[in-house]
């Protein structure tokens, strides 16, 4: 922020120096018009499609609605009471939590390994970096279809490989004990590209001479990794952690294509239950209640992660 200030002050016309009092009103008026004019398209679009719907969503959460989304009756906190006494909703919170625990740490761990292995100037590294970044081009739609076929119990390659090593086939998507794990595996794969790109950029930002001097001091690769790489990379890991958790809470497409929330509601994650409530049952009020709870969870998580992060994360 201090930098912004400097930039502003170094543009003479924009700074309100007292010696130029005569010109001040004119410049100011031009600046006012230009400033508001330039941000106007964004202000209109954000007001219509973010700010208004945000408050409307909170508003709707206190009402009963008809299938067209019209407000029928004010019900106060009844939607919220209903929500938190609804076993299915509490179950979907639990599933979302498990999904986050399954996908986020594993994904970051694998991506970190990939980033460390490719962060050098040996031959072919650019090729490997490209391959490890590839999943980022994959959309949730196409990835889900590919994995649906990989998970196929009779002709899919996963069960084929299991059978080759003498393990019995798994009903990846139709067994309630496996479905969430299967989708987690697919989700980890889909998220690897993003995590990898960010972590690799973080590694590349660590100056080489730090490694050089550590080597001269006789540090082994493990010492270098735990004493230099991890501390200096911690802000980046922390950032990846935040966006991964938020991404996990928002997951929807793979559940819609692969399991439809089943079997036996075992993959009924948060956004899928919101989608069901609002766009299948047409309960927009109850759906909005879920939307607001999601918002509160994400704000809280971001806040907690920042509070914890501030203490534990090593900033340069």
């Amino acid at each position: 922020m201090a930098k912004d200030q400097k930039v502003m002050q170094s543009i003479p016309v924009l700074s309100s120096s007292k010696t130029k009092m005569k010109h001040k009103p004119k410049h100011l008026r031009i600046d006012q018009i230009a400033g508001y004019g330039f941000i106007m398209p964004t202000v209109i679009l954000l007001s219509m499609f973010v700010f208004y719907p945000f408050f409307q969503s909170i508003y709707l959460s206190f009402f009963m609605t008809d299938p067209l989304g019209n407000v029928v009756k004010f019900v106060g906190f009844q939607n919220y009471v209903e929500l938190f006494t609804d076993k299915e909703f509490l179950n979907s919170l639990k599933i979302t939590f498990l999904f986050t625990v399954f996908t986020v740490p594993t994904g970051i761990f694998i991506a970190l390994i990939l980033a460390v292995l490719t962060n050098n100037k040996s031959k072919g590294m650019r090729g490997f970096q490209f391959i490890f970044a590839l999943p980022i081009a994959m959309s949730v739609g196409t990835s889900s279809i590919i994995w649906l076929l990989l998970f196929n119990p009779t002709a899919g390659v996963l069960n084929y490989l299991l059978n080759v090593v003498g393990v019995e086939s798994i009903q990846w998507l139709t067994n309630p004990d496996w479905a969430l794990l299967s989708i987690s595996i697919m989700t980890i794969w889909m998220g690897l590209g993003l995590d990898f790109i960010i972590l690799l950029a973080g590694l590349q930002a660590i100056p080489d001479d730090l490694y050089e001097s550590a080597k001269i001091d006789g540090a082994g690769s493990l010492t270098i990794f735990t004493k230099i790489t991890i501390p200096l990379l911690s802000p980046t890991i922390f950032f990846v952690l935040i966006i991964s958790v938020i991404n996990a809470l928002q997951a929807f497409g793979q559940f819609n294509v692969l399991t439809g929330g089943g079997p036996m509601k075992s993959t009924n994650v948060f956004v899928f239950s919101l989608y069901q409530e609002a766009f299948v049952n047409f309960q927009f009020g109850l759906g909005s209640t879920r939307a607001f709870v999601l918002f509160v969870i994400i704000v809280l998580l971001t806040w907690i992660q920042f509070k914890v992060g501030e203490k534990k994360v090593h900033y340069q």
Binding site: T42, L46, M48, F49, V50, F51, Y52, P53, F54, Q56, S57, L60, L68, G69, I246, L249, Q250, F252, V271, L274, A278, F279, F284, G287, S288, A291, F292, L294, F295, I298, V299, T302
Partner: peptide
């Protein structure tokens, strides 16, 4: 503007959908 980065699109989904209708 920056606070909107904390509002995931799912939160505003229902009113946006009704608005489109």
């Amino acid at each position: 503007f920056l606070t909107t980065l904390m509002v995931p699109s799912e939160v505003t989904l229902i009113p946006r959908y009704l608005m489109m209708g």
